[in-house]
Design a binder for these strands. Structure first.
Lengths: 205, 205
DNA sequence: CGCGTCTTCGGACGATTGTCAAGACTTTTT
DNA sequence: AAAAAGTCTTGACAATCGTCCGAAGACGCG
């Protein structure tokens, strides 16, 4: 195989992958709008400039598409939260930054977070996504644990709970705030901010 | 209207309601099996001894049925958790009892709790159940708050967070444990037990 | 018994679903 | 330019969905 052929082939493959990503991103928008239970392949296609038949050219079936969507979502999550470990010189600053960060995330993209929780629940019924979902949960847990450790360092203590427990506690606050936020409660973001800020010191000895 | 007629009518009405409850309970089993997204009226009927047409005799439409299911579920929840405030003479005993209680609930009926989380997510997409779901959340929050207050009394302190935050934290631990339990993690129940036991003292000043 | 009301059944409907295949259009290769 | 490969549209399919309806069964009352 010549070098030129390799480049050409690579280009085709990458174009194929690029369209896959494009379609998956449109599908994510549809899913965020309607939720897993109410999203069909045709409504997904309506979120693109293409027809519904094309989806089966780029994806084997619906499960394949949604699995790929979840992976895309995960990539976006990791990328977004990777540089999110706030820089702060005092534990109070870090706690505030952490609360603000999560409250902003809640306010900026509530529908995407709603979708994430939806898919995570679906993974309890269908084991097709289970693995992917578990990986996302894992990376979110690690992201949060970095913050907890940074807070412990700044305050001169050590974390007094497991990373899994810390993540579960933060996630509980976030999900409850999302629930209220979508129900129209104005104070949901502020409550989350305060909840996070007061939670952090509780996790340190 | 004669007295006899009243009795007859009452009897008819109560028989009508009784069958509604019966069908709703069967529907809950189907929902617990398959989840909201995958449960149709015909699969619900297959969980009963009746045909699918009967469902529309007792319920106006599918939303009516599921709404009634959620109400039934709520009634069961409140009844179950109302007498669950453990009797303990030391804070340590109460913390252990609380952890054991939630861990047992997780182990006894994981599918029902999975359904609860599913419906709570659906309430974020469809506002039909939103009210009912919020009421259930409220009662669960109150149940947990009774335990937190009892713990505070026994340990001679006062709760240092809001009821909503306390519930969110407990719920986060429970949901994460459920996720792991259904994924096959053997230690999920024990982790939940420990998580609850160590969480309670953190909420008290 | 006969009549009327309450229950239940089972088939049918139109709409929607996931899937697929045949063909048209576009781009690349020879 | 011809041929080939890749991309996209369209229409159809079988299955399933929620819903509705006519008829048959069950039951109570005169």
């Amino acid at each position: 195989m010549t070098s030129a052929a390799t480049v050409r082939r690579r280009s085709r493959v990458s174009k194929f992958d690029q369209r896959r990503r494009e379609l998956a991103d449109a599908a994510l928008l549809a899913l965020a709008d309607l939720g897993y239970a109410r999203t069909s392949l045709r409504t997904i296609a309506e979120h693109t400039e293409f027809s519904h038949g094309l989806l089966h050219y780029y994806f084997a079936d619906k499960i394949d598409l949604i699995t790929y969507c979840v992976q895309r979502y995960k990539a976006a999550c990791v990328e977004r939260y990777d540089g999110l470990v706030a820089e702060a010189s005092t534990p109070e600053q870090l706690a505030i930054a952490c609360g603000d960060g999560l409250a902003d995330a809640l306010g900026d993209a509530p529908l995407m977070h709603r979708l994430w929780y939806d898919l995570r629940i679906q993974s309890m019924f269908e084991d097709t996504f289970r693995e992917e979902v578990a990986e996302i949960d894992e990376s979110l847990q690690q992201m949060l644990w970095r913050n907890v450790r940074a807070y412990a360092d700044l305050s001169g203590g050590t974390p007094s709970c497991s990373p899994a427990d810390a993540y579960a506690l933060f996630d509980g606050l976030f999900q409850q705030a999302l629930l209220r936020h979508l129900a129209g409660t104005e104070t949901a973001q502020d409550d989350l901010r305060n909840g996070i800020r007061t939670l952090l010191p509780r996790l340190i000895d």
